[in-house]
Each structure stands twice: as structure tokens, then as C-alpha cells.
Simulated scan of single mutants.
Amino acid sequence: MVLLIIDTQKLITNKSLYEFGTFVSGVKSLIKKARENDVEVIYVRHDDGDGGELVKGTEGFEIYEEFKPEENERIFDKNVNSAFKETGLEEYLKEKGEKEIIIAGLQTDYCIDASVKCGFEHGFHIIIPAHANTTVDNEYMTAEKSYEYYNEYMWNNRYAECISSEAALERMKRR
């Protein structure tokens, strides 16, 4: 089991996100419990490349301070929605024999969705703790509706096991 924290970068981790406080608190709890139970915490950052807002080397590209990686924790950088495409993450996890991934981060309807589906297609058991992903309003749905759509309808029992935060924390203790 690993905890995968996706795109929680300074530029986009802010109060415009749906249930921001609950999200921050939940992700911090997951990271803390993972570290206490020797569950590897892995981070993924998104790089838009030249001309984009999230660009390697800028302050906004770095991981949000409250989720800051420890020195020994791995960081994979990506330039597409999926954490698995051409990052080395899939190979790293398979080499270690990992089968379960707890996914948390940003944004529900973009990189989390792509990573959940790709992780599933690569044979991983994906676990999504409640309120450990979030997003902003888009032109079609509010952030709340997007969160509900993916967590309660799209992923659950199809691509992932969507469980309470408490259940995810308990799983890390029992592994």
C-alpha cells in the first residue's frame, strides 16, 4: 500500500476549492497516519511547461506547505493528467510489488479522475478516502456536484473503492 498525493501544489491549493478546510485536514491526517505506519507517501506534481501557470522552478509549482514531503519521500513530475503516463510511477510501484494505492489530491475532475482510471487499468486496487480530493466550479457543474459525481457515482465500485476517511486511516494501521 502507498499513499499517492497528486498535484497539491501551492498555486492551486487554495480557498477556491470545494470544502477547502475539510480537504486540507483530511490530506494532512492521511499523510500523518501513513508516515506513522510505514506506508510510503509519494507525491506527483503537474508541470504545464513553458507558458503555463504551473511551471517547474516557480514557487507555485512546489508542494503546498502543509503537505510538504519529507526528504526521503519520492516526487514524480508529470505534464499530462495521469500520474502514470511517462512518469516512471507505474514501473516504480510494480517493481516494489505494490498493489494498493490510496489516492488524494487535486483536481477531482481532472488529474485525480485520469489517475484513478489509469491506475485501475494498470491493475492497481485504488482506494479513495472521502474528502481527500476536491476541485473548483467549472462551466458545467459546481465543484460540489463534480465531487459527488466522481466519488459517489463514477469511481465507486467501478474503478475504485471509495471509503470514509476513517476507514482509510484504519486500513493503513492494519496493513
Rank of each mutant, 00 (worst) to 15 (best):
E59D: 15
L11A: 13
E91K: 15
T108E: 10
K56Q: 12
F23C: 06
T142F: 05
K85A: 08
T135Y: 00
E152A: 03
N151W: 04
V24Y: 01
A83F: 02
K96A: 13
Y149D: 13
Q107W: 04
S82E: 11
G57D: 04
H125D: 13
E98R: 15
E62L: 15
E139K: 12
D47C: 02
K96R: 14
Q9M: 10
A167W: 04
Y43H: 11
N14L: 07
C118K: 14
H125Q: 14
N14P: 05
R45C: 07
I31W: 03
D137R: 07
N79K: 09
V116Y: 03
K68E: 10
E148A: 12
E70D: 11
L3Q: 06
L3C: 05
V24I: 12
F23E: 11
V80Y: 06
Y64H: 15
V44K: 07
S25P: 03
D77C: 08
S16K: 14
M172E: 06
I128A: 10
A167F: 03
K173P: 01
G105S: 10
N157I: 02
I163K: 05
G52P: 04
S165I: 08
G21C: 06
K85L: 12
N72H: 14
E65Y: 02
T135P: 02
R171V: 03
V2E: 10
H46Y: 03
S146E: 14
E100D: 13
C162V: 15
L54T: 05
G52C: 02
T135R: 07
F124E: 10
S115Q: 07
I126M: 09
M172F: 02
K96S: 04
I101Y: 01
H131G: 00
K68L: 14
C162E: 06
G105Y: 01
E98T: 05
A143C: 06
A130H: 11
A104H: 03
R171G: 06
G21W: 04
D113F: 00
E91W: 08
E70S: 15
T87Q: 12
D77H: 00
T108P: 00
F61Y: 15
F61I: 09
W155F: 15
N151R: 07
V44D: 07
E65N: 12
R74H: 09
E86L: 09
L89G: 06
K68M: 11
K85E: 05
Y140T: 07
L54W: 00
K173C: 04
I126K: 00
E36A: 12
E70A: 05
T135M: 07
S29V: 01
E86S: 13
E90I: 08
L169W: 05
A160Q: 04
A168D: 05
E170K: 14
E73L: 12
